[in-house]
Structure formats: structure tokens, C-alpha cells
Design a protein around this nucleic acid. Sequence first.
DNA 1: AACTGTGAAGTTTTTCACAGCC
DNA 2: GGCTGTGAAAAACTTCACAGTT
Lengths: 211, 211
Amino acid sequence: MPLKLSDRIPDIVIGRLPLYLRALTRLQQKDRDITSSHELGRRLGISSAQIRKDLSHFGGFGKQGTGYQIEFLVDKLRQVLQITQQWQVAVVGAGNLGSAISNYAGFTERGFHISWLFDADPTKVGKQIGDFKVLPLDDMEQMVKDNNCQIAMLAVPAEYAQEVANKLVEAGVRAILNYAPININVPEHVMVQYIDPVVHMQHMTYYLRDE
Amino acid sequence: MPLKLSDRIPDIVIGRLPLYLRALTRLQQKDRDITSSHELGRRLGISSAQIRKDLSHFGGFGKQGTGYQIEFLVDKLRQVLQITQQWQVAVVGAGNLGSAISNYAGFTERGFHISWLFDADPTKVGKQIGDFKVLPLDDMEQMVKDNNCQIAMLAVPAEYAQEVANKLVEAGVRAILNYAPININVPEHVMVQYIDPVVHMQHMTYYLRDE
DNA sequence: AACTGTGAAGTTTTTCACAGCC
DNA sequence: GGCTGTGAAAAACTTCACAGTT
């Protein structure tokens, strides 16, 4: 069965696929072979109908009466998300955050290999941080281009984020995970996702009313 | 003008308020006094109509013909989000991630004070990590209860996340920011938000097709 | 002239509910 | 009996467009 991707699929659906994949991988670790939209839904706090509908965008992955074969579905989701091979990733910013990111073990097994750690600060360049030797930001463009690296993580102070993002785009990066607490502007063809823990915290405090 | 909160406001709206606040604070740093829904929208990649509608849920914060007074709006958003005072936060997990989180400077100025860092591992307990001395997880419940701490960040391995979450809830925590790459189940009255960089990365790789 | 606040219209997303299959 | 896949219905969300204000 070929992957069906012809019609444009809503971004909100794409955003849920990694969650499905994550839950499925966990079931796999427990040596489970088969699951259902109901079980997945219960675990994820999502309705079973939604899960079925989301998955149906890509073709029929399940069996009526039975459910979904986990290994098969994991495979399909990896294909859809294009994480069958590893992506090279450049990290910019070798402060506390950049260091923690670079040496976070969780990326490798889920499709990403941190390849370089850059910083503009000459006092940081050359230092060994975990597995990485900090490279000068000036080498970034060359490195990214030569290796056709398409993804970067941005862990610089907010005031430099736009400037560094521009350089990344210039170098050919098409996807940026921005840890700096600021919105950045990029061309149409470049994707940006944001991680700002404070945003999540402030979202939650809204509900911390006593009544 | 009193804060209007009577009708239930969509969660998706609440989720955008921290982004507005973040953008406004940046404008403030540039000594700007007044802005408009159009300017904010441009910066955030959100339509001006949406911003106006979102803000209107809480009362009229703007002036027709003029726009929004930044300081006033910042104040109002802080009230709505309940970050006029600082919240005490407990961090569980003193590994790489927990250490980086605990010592991240960005929380303080935006409403949160990391108060404690806990870990279950006896070899870590007692160690000094940045500003924190690692406390035994067994002390957590007492500490959280005594100080009426309502918010925790979870930075433990996935296989312990549920167990620790249960303890946090037991201790009275009502909001959890979960960095572990796994969904956790909590009672109705407890809020959970997730941070998993890989989910964002996998979301982006979907679009990295050559077409 | 510029901008907000907001009903109404339009679009997207979710849920329902059931035919079809194992 | 249990489950998927899916049109149709319902709900949620966003945009439009303009009256009203400065």
C-alpha cells in the first residue's frame, strides 16, 4: 500500500503524528503488538475518532475488528514524518541551554543527530562541551552548506535570535527550532517551531484560581 | 475597569496571551508606549482581528483610533494570567535537563521562582548544582505542602514520570510542566503541559520534502 | 485617518454514528 | 463483539467588514 499524501493534510493533524508515534514506541517497548484507536486515545487524552480520522489521511493502516499493528503503524508514521533516516542538526548557542540540548541523549533514537555546536563568543569557541567542541559561528555557513544540513536549533539570547536565524536561512537551513523567547521572521519556505517553557507556565497559571 | 472573566474563555485564546505578553514586553524594552493589533499581529504572524478578538474577551483594553497602551495592556495580561506575583516552582530530576532548567535565568523576570530541586538518586542528593542543593525526593511532599507550592517541572526519565507525577499531585501540585517524553495521567483538576523538542522536530521534518 | 470592538460569515476541526469487516 | 474508516453533523475557531470612537 503506497503512502497517500496527495491532498494537503491539515497542519494540526501533522502535529499530532509525533505524539502517536511516541505513544506507539512506548507500547513497543512493552512488547505489545497490537493496539486500538481507543487505547491510544485513552493514553493521549484524544478521542478515538480523531485518531482514526488523522491516520486515515494517509491510507488504511488498521484492520477492522482488530486494531492497528504497532510495528507497521510505527513504520508508516516514520515514513510520513520522514524520519526513516537521521537528520543532521546544527545547534547555535553554547550557553547553558545550548550545552544541555547538544548533549541530550533523546534525539538520536528519534531521528536526529546533533552534528555541530556553534557560538559567536570567542571565549567559548574551542571549548569541549560534552561530546562537542564549540565551533565559531563564522564557520556555520560553510559547514551547513557543505553537509546540506537542513535543521537548526537556536539557543542564543533573544536579542541575537533574528540575526542568527537570518544567517541560518542564508546557509540553506529550512527548519528552525527556536528556544529563544522571541518571534523570528523567516521566508515562506522556512519552518519555525518555538519552545519557551515560560509560555506554558503562564498558560497554566491562568487556571490556578481558587474557586 | 474590572477584569471580565465571567464567560468561559477558550483555552486556545488563553494559550496565546503569553505570546502577546512576550511581544509586548519586548516592545517595552525598546521604550515603546503604544502599539496596535496590526503591529502585534505582524510580529507574531497572527491576524490583527484575532488579537483584537482575543483581548476583547477580557474587556476593552484598547482605544479606538489610537491602539493599545503597552504598559496598561501588559499589566492587564499579567492580571489575567495571574503572574502579578511570583509562583514557587519545584523541579524534580537533577540530571542534565533538570540542572539546566533550574539554573535558567529566564524564569524569574516572568513570574516564576525555582525554589527546589529534587532527585530520587542518593548519589545526587546533597550535591550543589548551580544555585541549588539537590534535595531527596522523599522530602518533596513535605516541602511542597508546607509552602503551598502549586507548580512543578518534571525532568525525570520517561519510565518514572507517571510515578513522580502521582506524588506531586498527592502533595497538592496543580500544574505540571512535563519534560519527559511521555503522556501522564492526572486528575481533572491538575493541568499538564508538555515540552518535547523531538515532537517539534518531527513535525517540521514532515514538510522537508523536495518537491 | 487610524484604530478598536464585534456581530455575522466563513472556514476548520472535532465528534457522531454507522456501514463494513474480522 | 469489537474495531476501522468515513460521510454527515456539530462545534470551535478565524476572518470579514464595518459602526463607532479618538
